[in-house]
């Protein structure tokens, strides 16, 4: 009788042990399965914010997943309307002078070095380079640096450029 009782206890303990292990694994399984079913991919933005810093750190150009952004000429005394100017990770300068990346030679209201556009981790940013007549985004004057979104109209001198993304 004692023998029977002790085997029963041992069996119950064995069953409990297995139950414990099964529960432990079910918990792990549950966590790992839900972790794999994440509703979105993690953000791939580079931690290094500016392309210049990324180049200095030896990281090369930004993430290939970044959207292609370009400026489209809407109104200009010198450039063709509808002309496209692509932006990449290198900073671009705009102005009347020939050393700029986008030369606005016929625009009398643009300064020699007027504004700079650079791609940061979150998109294009425009910075006014102490121009005489200022840089405007959607009619508002840019102070310091400002983020550009798709559809924004950038005015430099008498030139209007539309930001397009795809």
């Amino acid at each position: 009788m004692v023998l029977v009782a002790s085997t029963t206890v041992a069996e119950v303990l064995l069953a409990l042990k297995i139950a414990f292990l099964v529960l432990l694994y079910l918990f792990v399984l549950r966590v790992i399965r839900s972790a794999g079913r994440e509703r979105r991919a993690p953000s791939q933005d580079s931690m290094i914010l500016t392309p210049a810093a990324a180049a200095a750190a030896g990281l090369g150009p930004g993430s290939p997943r970044r959207k292609a952004v370009r400026l489209v000429v809407q109104r200009s005394p010198s450039l063709d309307e509808g002309g496209e100017f692509p932006l990449n990770s290198a900073p671009k300068t705009l102005g009347r002078g020939g050393q700029n990346d986008l030369v606005l030679s016929g625009d009398e209201f643009a300064s020699a070095r007027h504004a700079r556009i650079e791609m940061r981790g979150d998109g294009p940013w425009v910075q006014d380079l102490d121009s005489t007549n200022g840089t405007y985004v959607n009619g508002a004057r840019v102070v310091g640096a400002q983020r550009l979104g798709a559809g924004d109209v950038l005015r430099v001198g008498e030139t209007d450029l539309v930001v397009e993304e795809d």
């Binding site: 292990l21 432990l24 918990f27 792990v28 966590v31 790992i32 972790a35 994440e38």
Partner: peptide
């Protein structure tokens, strides 16, 4: 071994969540 493997898996899952 089975039990501590589960334990280590738990730690891994925790770290996985942390890095995510």
């Amino acid at each position: 071994l089975i039990g501590v493997s589960a334990l280590l898996l738990l730690y891994m899952a925790f770290v996985l969540r942390g890095f995510r």
